[in-house]
Computed example of a mutant assay.
Amino acid sequence: MQKIIRIAVVLTTCLLVGYLSGMVTRESITTWYPTIVKPTFNPPNWIFAPVWSILYIMMGVSGGMVWNRFEQDSENVKKAFTFFIIQLALNAAWTVIFFYFHNPFLALIEIILLWLLIFETYTQFKKIDKTAGMLLLPYLAWVSFAMVLNGSIWWLNR
């Protein structure tokens, strides 16, 4: 498979996860979310879609870059991709837990696990391709912020 096709496959997968997560969020963002207490540092709603779009693109490119190293380092790529897939699933699960089930506490527990898996994915990717690893750092930073935001929302609404 050509390198561009691998990147395109992972990129499309990440954007699809983002799109489906957005669909889960849409209803709650106009019904439940406005009714809960949020901290003063809560960003405006419009910021989330462009930030997540950029992050999903960076994740997809990063994942594709690692997949492109399969022939040279198959065992490490398999291990790294396992973490990548798990963190991507956890990413989607957080949206369902927080926005569909309206459960900030369970979402907080889940996002801590998500952060750990993103960090491990970054660590594994960095061993295979330094640039691929670096592409995950903004994602790790944003999820760090989201974890603090999630924790604050839970605390303010308990």
Rank of each mutant, 00 (worst) to 15 (best):
residue 2 Q to M: 11
residue 3 K to W: 08
residue 7 I to A: 05
residue 7 I to W: 08
residue 8 A to G: 10
residue 9 V to S: 00
residue 13 T to S: 15
residue 13 T to L: 15
residue 21 S to Q: 10
residue 22 G to R: 09
residue 22 G to V: 12
residue 23 M to L: 13
residue 31 T to M: 06
residue 32 W to H: 11
residue 33 Y to S: 00
residue 34 P to K: 12
residue 37 V to H: 13
residue 38 K to S: 06
residue 38 K to C: 05
residue 39 P to S: 11
residue 40 T to V: 13
residue 41 F to H: 14
residue 45 N to C: 09
residue 45 N to F: 00
residue 46 W to D: 09
residue 46 W to H: 13
residue 48 F to H: 03
residue 51 V to S: 11
residue 51 V to C: 11
residue 54 I to R: 06
residue 58 M to E: 06
residue 59 M to Q: 10
residue 70 F to C: 06
residue 71 E to V: 15
residue 74 S to I: 14
residue 74 S to Q: 12
residue 74 S to V: 04
residue 74 S to F: 06
residue 75 E to P: 02
residue 75 E to V: 15
residue 76 N to K: 13
residue 77 V to Q: 03
residue 78 K to N: 14
residue 80 A to G: 05
residue 82 T to A: 13
residue 82 T to S: 14
residue 83 F to D: 01
residue 83 F to K: 09
residue 84 F to G: 04
residue 85 I to R: 03
residue 88 L to K: 01
residue 93 A to E: 00
residue 94 W to Y: 11
residue 95 T to C: 12
residue 99 F to M: 15
residue 101 F to M: 15
residue 101 F to R: 13
residue 102 H to V: 04
residue 103 N to M: 10
residue 104 P to Q: 08
residue 104 P to W: 08
residue 104 P to C: 07
residue 112 I to P: 05
residue 115 W to I: 04
residue 117 L to Q: 04
residue 121 T to N: 00
residue 123 T to R: 15
residue 125 F to W: 07
residue 126 K to E: 01
residue 127 K to I: 00
residue 128 I to S: 01
residue 128 I to E: 08
residue 129 D to P: 09
residue 132 A to M: 07
residue 132 A to R: 01
residue 133 G to Q: 08
residue 134 M to N: 15
residue 134 M to G: 02
residue 135 L to F: 15
residue 137 L to T: 11
residue 137 L to N: 02
residue 137 L to W: 02
residue 137 L to V: 13
residue 138 P to N: 08
residue 139 Y to K: 05
residue 140 L to N: 07
residue 141 A to E: 01
residue 142 W to G: 08
residue 144 S to F: 10
residue 144 S to L: 09
residue 146 A to P: 07
residue 147 M to E: 10
residue 148 V to C: 06
residue 149 L to V: 14
residue 149 L to R: 02
residue 150 N to Q: 09
residue 153 I to S: 02
residue 154 W to N: 00
residue 154 W to C: 03
residue 155 W to N: 03
residue 156 L to G: 10
residue 157 N to I: 07
